[in-house]
Amino acid sequence: MLGRYPDIAGTGLHLEKGLEKIGHYKELPFVKDGDSELMHQPIDFLGINVYNGHEVSATGHIKKKPGSPRTALGWPVTPGVMNYGIRYMYERYNLPIYIFEDGLACNDIISLDGKVHDSNRIDFLTRYLTDLEKAYKTGVPILGYFHWSFTDNFEWHSGYDPRFGLVFVDYETQQRIPKDSAYWYSDLIRQSCN
């Protein structure tokens, strides 16, 4: 994006120089003369996957309090990342932004009434989209938002166990059941378009 690797943790040292010091590790990328110039091409927007963030202070990471909300995969629920994280990315790269992925894994089940009640997903999305709207209202050009995922699917991280979708998939029968969040999200989009 900037034509160079980013500064390493505020040291003023860029990764290219760091690679010279640790370049004997074969799995690290080798940067040849001209690579940065070749990769540094103008682009129209920045696409970001956003699931969580980490709060920090001048002294380091701020530990989460015991019992803080987490997803089924144990990821922290940090809606502020959609405000401060997105604003940071815009300030750094000065490009319009698409959120290509955002959502959470839940332990969704078909309830006795035959429906999937995922109030935690609705709560998560309400919080994250509210903070995304804050970033938008400060002037960040957010061109689009894509929820991950429309249906439950195979996740590279943990297979079929975590469910990210707005629509429940019975993997044995392939039956699809819209979750409460699917109806909520549909209403939200409908209201936003009016």
Rank of each mutant, 00 (worst) to 15 (best):
M89Y: 13
I99L: 02
R87T: 14
P79Y: 01
F146P: 00
L132W: 04
D113A: 01
Y88K: 11
D118P: 14
T151Y: 06
W75Q: 00
F154M: 11
L129T: 10
I86W: 00
P96H: 01
I86Y: 01
F146L: 08
K134F: 08
E91V: 06
L143H: 11
R121N: 03
H117C: 10
D123V: 07
S111W: 14
V77D: 07
L132Q: 06
I86R: 00
V116W: 04
H147L: 11
T126V: 10
L143P: 04
Y128H: 15
D113I: 04
D118H: 06
P96S: 10
I122A: 05
T138F: 11
V140W: 06
F154I: 07
N107Y: 14
Y84F: 14
I86L: 09
R127H: 13
I99R: 05
Y90P: 10
E101F: 00
L104C: 13
R92S: 14
L112P: 10
N107W: 08
G80P: 04
V140P: 09
T78S: 05
I99V: 15
H147K: 03
N120G: 13
L73I: 11
P96E: 07
F154Y: 13
Y84K: 12
V140N: 01
A135P: 11
V77K: 06
R127A: 14
F154W: 12
G74V: 08
T151L: 12
V140K: 04
I99P: 00
L95D: 11
I142K: 04
I97R: 06
G144N: 07
H117P: 07
E101W: 00
D123F: 09
S111M: 12
Y88S: 12
E133G: 06
Y145K: 06
R121K: 09
F124D: 02
G139V: 02
V140Q: 03
I110P: 09
N94I: 09
D123S: 10
I142C: 08
K115Q: 13
L132H: 08
